[in-house]
Design a protein around this nucleic acid. Structure first.
Length: 425
DNA sequence: TCTGGGGTCCTAGGACCC
DNA sequence: TCTGGGGTCCTAGGACCC
């Protein structure tokens, strides 16, 4: 087997730079929803030692001093750039797996040409056609391809491409002995700690570790990782997008919320968004979980966090799901708290084609509802999300709790009125 | 004042059944 | 006072990923 992992460098920052080249060379960050924390950093920002996930308010002084430019996240733009990026990749390999918004695995098994040169061609084309810089890692398993990608990104002498399968075992060992085990795909903070107590500190240590012992002390997942580091491919390319098993919608509020009324509006909005995704993948949900919580970062305030799962006759009907969610919310709601976040989770998903028909149900009513949902999705697709929804979710201007997005760039590629040329005039 | 959101998989423990 | 063993299903929580 041979896999390549193509990954956009500092994806969100790079997308912003495509439409404002003057940002090139400047320190740039993109912030999460509510402008909460840093989710993308340019190389200049990384060099300042600012970690991923750092809360923005803690950085403001640094930002001023170094002239850091901060953008609110613009997901419509990033998603569209991602689609363009993926479509270019599909011309380089017949089999590929879109792993995330900015990463894609290609199956290069059986390719006879020089893979490093092929990867450089991919880099040039992506750069030329969509303006995004990418790095490419190649290896005989997905875990090795990930590792190679890390090397390509961190060590400039590789010029953006690293093919581990072209290295001699001796060179590979030398490389792996110099990389922290925490950089391995699937090894997070806790596992790194646990491995450390066993004396496993580098990628090479993990590669040479005893698989049975790893399985016993940790899990089958980590055992698989060790196998993959040794070139034994355990994780397949997943070309077809599989149906989600859960669909979630949750969000922090722009400001604290206390009333059941406002929580109900937020929950209703979340159900609408999740139900739309549910119908899009052609599934029905057999349960809906509702959760609310106060702000855990303010331990001096009274804290409350509660969730409840409400079972229901499997459905994809926004109104039925909303009813269930609101009944759950009423059960867990306690007055007297400053709530910071609410969300819902659709669970027990199954294909709509398997939906059992209730013997006593009103079929005509069922049909009308289906058509209503279709019409609603179509209107929201055409005129923007939340154009049409249950009345309880409130209207835009009346949603003081909705999120803060102080500095979002225009939807350059997905909205006619935001085309760059219109701004140039 | 201000700390994201959406996923997956695994494990442990409780309820229940025979 | 005595109190099995094994299976399934569900849920909560932990860990990881981007």
């Amino acid at each position: 087997m041979k896999f390549a992992l193509v990954d956009v460098n500092n994806c969100y920052v790079s997308c912003e730079r495509v439409f404002d080249p003057s940002l090139e060379g400047k320190p740039v960050v993109v912030l999460s929803n509510n402008d909460g924390c840093v989710v993308a950093r340019s190389a200049e920002v990384k060099a300042l030692g600012i970690p991923m996930g750092e809360p923005w308010f803690k950085l403001k002084h640094l930002a001023k001093r170094h002239g850091i430019v901060a953008f609110s996240s613009n997901y419509a733009l990033y998603a569209d750039m991602s689609n363009r990026f993926m479509s270019i990749l599909s011309s380089f390999a017949a089999n590929l797996e879109i792993y995330s918004i900015d990463e894609c695995f290609l199956d290069l098994s059986g390719f006879s040409q020089d893979l490093t040169e092929y990867a450089q061609q991919i880099r040039r084309k992506v750069r030329q056609w969509v303006g995004l810089p990418v790095c490419i890692g190649i290896g005989s398993t997905k875990t090795l391809a990930k590792m190679a990608n890390h090397v390509a990104k961190k060590r400039t002498e590789w010029n953006g491409v690293c093919d581990l399968s072209s290295l001699s075992p001796c060179l590979q060992e030398k490389l792996f002995s110099g990389i922290d085990v925490g950089e391995v795909w699937g090894v997070g903070k806790r596992l790194k700690e646990g491995l450390g107590t066993m004396g496993i500190r580098t990628v090479l240590d993990l590669k040479n570790s005893d698989r049975a012992r790893i399985r016993k002390r940790f899990s089958v997942v980590l055992e698989r990782t060790v196998a993959e580091l040794n070139g034994i491919s355990c994780i397949d390319l997943e070309e077809v997008a599989v149906d989600r098993q859960q669909i979630q919608s949750s969000r922090s509020f722009g400001r604290p919320v206390a009333s059941l009324q406002e929580l109900s509006e937020a929950v209703t909005l979340h159900v609408s968004r999740a139900a739309e995704k549910l119908r899009h993948q052609g599934s029905i949900a057999g349960g809906i979980q509702v959760h609310i919580r106060t702000n855990p970062f303010r331990p001096e305030d009274p804290q409350y966090s509660q969730g409840v799962t409400v079972p229901l006759a499997a459905s994809d009907d926004t109104l039925a799901l909303t009813r269930a969610a609101l009944s759950g919310l009423k059960k867990i709601y306690r007055p007297g708290f400053a709530y910071a976040k609410a969300g819902i989770l659709l669970v027990q998903l199954s294909p709509k084609s398997q939906q059992p028909i209730d013997l006593f149900a009103d079929l005509a009513q069922f049909e009308r509802r289906s058509r209503l949902m279709e019409a609603m999705d179509e209107i929201n697709r055409r005129y923007g999300r939340n154009t049409l929804g249950p009345g309880i979710s409130g209207f835009g201007a009346r949603r003081p709790w909705s999120m803060k997005r102080g500095n979002r760039t225009p939807a350059y590629t997905t909205d006619w009125k935001d085309l760059p040329i219109a701004h140039a005039r």
